[in-house]
Write a protein that binds this DNA or RNA. Structure first.
Lengths: 133, 133
DNA sequence: TCAAATAGGACTATATTAGTCCAAATTAGA
DNA sequence: TCTAATTTGGACTAATATAGTCCTATTTGA
């Protein structure tokens, strides 16, 4: 199916929320409560975004998260790759071909699927968080 | 994740195969053998395509399938809808909103996701089987 | 030293996708 | 008219991916 995962959905909501909390640190709990996002799942997502340098974090009392990039520097395409792994319309389209396609020899549609993949990627490469704010 | 299902993948291969077998009826077994596609699954797909008037079928000995439309009249977008159900980047994007979104009230990204969905749909609406042949 | 917060591993549950099995109906041809 | 080739289609199982939970450790400000 063609869909955006919950992880990415939640990340978009969280990033938008943080971007609108001018410079104040925002806690996972705040976002979870306001946006009705499962706390533990959201925590994981925020941690990931921190590790990917999208967010800055402060531990401990009064801690929280803040943006480490401008909203127009955060591409949806990259978020999707970070959170869901690389986008591959078919198994043979993974960047690192960890999954060999058993149809390889008989497959007759690969090159066109590759084009398609590029076009879909372009849609996501042309969206940043600023489009959602 | 953003991916094309096996069903659609197999449908593309099968339709391409049939379109290249000039007018001769093609059996599910032939396609399955040549393209290494699980027979039962392929059968289901061909049946579906027949019910959707993409294919014509003849039962019995010497039976098989043939195209009921020109390749440039068969849109990838429609294939995907037939085989996988309607494309919805997020739950709230289903045409028939059978799945209510529990975040509805707190959701702040819906309108932008809708735009995104339209752009992705357009990619698939602009591809037909003739692009794969 | 306590409470608020992030960090992160391990696990479970749910949903989706892929694939299999079986029996029925149809039909051409021997 | 019998048989084999074929489509038809329901019911089921298996595999995989996604979503969500639980628990404990670490950091830090007051």
């Amino acid at each position: 199916m063609i869909r955006i995962s919950k992880k990415v959905e939640y990340a978009l909501m969280a990033l938008k929320f943080i971007s609108q909390s001018d410079n104040k640190l925002v806690t996972a709990r705040e976002i979870s409560d306001t946006k009705k996002i499962p706390y533990d799942l959201l925590s994981k997502i925020l941690q990931k975004l921190k590790n990917e340098n999208i967010l800055l974090s402060n531990q401990g009392t009064n801690g929280g998260y803040s943006l480490n990039k401008r909203t127009d520097e955060i591409y949806l395409f990259n978020l999707m790759n970070m959170l869901d792994g690389d986008i591959a319309l078919a198994d043979c389209m993974h960047e690192t071909k960890e999954k060999e396609c058993s149809l390889e020899d008989s497959c007759s549609i690969k090159s066109e699927v590759a084009k398609l993949q590029k076009e879909v990627e372009d849609v996501f490469k042309n969206k940043t968080i600023s489009d959602f704010v």
